[in-house]
């Protein structure tokens, strides 16, 4: 484990069993996450992108132990959190927080904002009311809300404000790592940039590490230091932002990139249209998961699972067609 990695995910698998009938037989297994390896470095914003249903949320929640992982390990600050009991886990929960996609369902409609944000403090032993009040106010002010808002109910706020409340709830326990699960995709475009900038500022100010889940490439490009691309339960490519956007290697990433709208109408980009729908995680295709839709697929693709290979410059890719550049091989992974 390198010093600079806050989190190391190794071969993470999350399978959901679908049960049916009165006897509750297992009718099928949804391989939502099927062997994910990923490092998250201290102080970075790592973007995680992929189509809907590819398992992004599940990865984020498995890291926080909100869904039980089937196998694999997640090391947070060097400790394998899957091996911890729930009491041992509790102090860690303070350090790892979550911001949700839907600002409407993520706040208890029956609690006042002050109580929603303060709940975390209560759980983590801040029993003094005054102290709690002070810290809740601090967190709210950090996200641009004021004292009177504490006594209001969530439904009195706009979507953007609610998302700020959600962020304040995560911040109030002073975490070092936050999973942001598509925190802006439910918001109006005009509000999106405010929230994104807020997250960026907070990340710098508080020295946070963020796992930023998105399916919108442009949002990721705006915000992240590094980007991981996911397809059907697997990470297919990871690289620094400039590297990934400038030099996408995996055919899937390339297809995603080609779909980003470009502001300058003179620049033309060839759009790669992927045939068909993504396969069901119930029955993922053998070999490369992408081969059913890959424009470059070759014979081996349907038989062998491609391994993640470092192409150099910290650029990892899992595709049979991509080989490391000769000079990059020597670099230690």
């Amino acid at each position: 484990m390198t010093e600079e990695n806050l989190l190391e995910i190794r071969d993470l698998k999350v399978h959901f069993e679908i049960k049916s009938g009165i006897l509750k037989r297992t009718a099928g297994v949804v391989k939502a996450v099927d062997g994910v390896d990923l490092d998250i470095r201290r102080g970075e914003i790592l973007g995680l992108v992929g189509e809907s249903g590819c398992g992004k949320t599940t990865v984020g929640r498995a890291i926080l132990r909100l869904v039980e992982a089937t196998s694999g390990s997640v090391k947070f600050k060097g400790r394998d959190i899957f091996k911890l009991s729930s009491t041992e886990m509790k102090p860690l929960r303070r350090e790892m927080q979550l911001v949700f996609q839907d600002p409407y369902s993520s706040l208890d409609p029956r609690s006042k904002v002050g109580d929603i944000v303060g709940e975390g403090l209560r759980v983590h032993g801040v029993t003094d009311r005054k102290e709690r009040y002070r810290r809740v106010l601090e967190a709210l002010e950090m996200v641009g809300l004021q004292e009177p808002h504490m006594r209001r109910f969530p439904h009195e706020f706009s979507g953007g404000q609610r998302q700020r409340i959600g962020i304040a709830r995560a911040l109030v326990v002073k975490p070092s790592f936050i999973v942001c699960d598509e925190p802006v995709s439910a918001l109006d475009v005009s509000i999106q940039s405010q929230v994104l900038n807020l997250l960026k500022d907070l990340q710098q100010e508080l020295d946070l590490t963020l796992l930023f889940i998105a399916h919108d490439m442009s949002v990721v490009e705006h915000l992240c230091n590094r980007v991981a691309v996911m397809y059907l339960g697997k990470i297919v490519e990871v690289a620094e932002r400039e590297e990934l956007f400038g030099n996408p290697q995996h055919p899937y990433t390339q297809a995603l990139m080609s779909a980003i709208p470009i502001a300058d109408p003179k620049v033309k980009r060839e759009r790669i249209i992927l045939p068909g729908d993504p396969p069901s995680p119930l029955r993922p295709p053998p070999g490369c998961r992408f081969h059913t839709r890959c424009p470059e697929a070759i014979d081996i693709c349907s038989q062998e699972i491609p391994q993640q290979i470092d192409l150099g410059r910290q650029h990892l890719c899992a595709c049979h067609l991509r080989q490391p550049e000769p000079d990059a091989v020597q670099q230690p992974a």
């Binding site: 926080l64 979550l98 839907d102 369902s105 993520s106 929603i116 975390g120 983590h124």
Partner: peptide, 13 residues
């Protein structure tokens, strides 16, 4: 299954 319950679990409630 609501997110605000997940948020509580994430906080260790």
């Amino acid at each position: 299954e609501e997110d605000f319950v997940t948020a509580d679990r994430a906080l260790g409630v």
